[in-house]
Design a binder for these strands. Sequence first.
DNA 1: ACCCAGGAAATTC
DNA 2: GAATTTCATGGG
Length: 288
Amino acid sequence: MSIVFENVKDLDLKETLDCGQCFRWKEREDGSFFGVVRGRAARAYMDGDSLILDGAEEADREMWFDYFDLGLDYGAVRELLSRVHPVMAEAARFAPGIRILRQEPFEALISFIISQNNNIKRISGIVERLCEGFGEPIRMGEACSSRTEDCADISGEDVYYRFPTAERLSALTPDDLAPIRAGFRHRYIIDGAQKVCGSEIDLEALRDMPYDDAKRELMKITGVGVKVADCTLLYGLHRLDGFPLDVWMKRAMAVLFDGMDPSEFGEYAGIAQQYIFHYSRMNPGLFE
DNA sequence: ACCCAGGAAATTC
DNA sequence: GAATTTCATGGG
């Protein structure tokens, strides 16, 4: 079984899945990508302007549509942003197939807690070990309903794992997380899980809250500062006005944009940020 | 050995 | 309060 979305514009899977916004998609030998989203596993590839999701079920069509943000005209957004600054136009032209994914809020939160003072390759490894160690097993194309381990690895089929729930992670100790080798971030992960599942923080409520209020909520978590909060809002809650400033972005804004204020990018600043981040990271010579 | 990695907390000045 | 150090881990 598979899902096809026809006439998809402005989507390049490599640019979108390998630009530092998500950490669970793996590129295969044939150029397709395998990933797990909201407990659904799929293999994604483009055929012309059709997006194919092998292993996905028709019942999840809307979920996948939302995940790839297919309802937004990124061509129009690119034109809008490109008028703000010539370097912005250049960055958008460099990777016009980037889209901002609608990831699960909790997954985005934990992933970007892990991202601090870390590199993308190692972040992916830690996230993978976190899922394999503490996530529910599923199988290609069908969510595994069993809550025990014995659904895994009986048939010889490959087994995949959901991102762990806040409930599961909230019950752990830092030592329990030793196998994922995230070091000092272990207690941050646990604190985030505890505040989310103890309803101290309602992630869904952050969707329609003034941006700065939502950000302050997230920063109640130990290990969540300004940048991780911005990433959680942009990638997990699709707050496209968010503008995470990491070392690359600070340098880019200072050097390439002459200290311009990000708010000048308007309601789609977060998309601008992603074009600029990717453009900078792929062209480090710009800063020598 | 040293430095850096999509930072933030803890400590010091 | 602002500046500096520390925090695990792995790769260059």
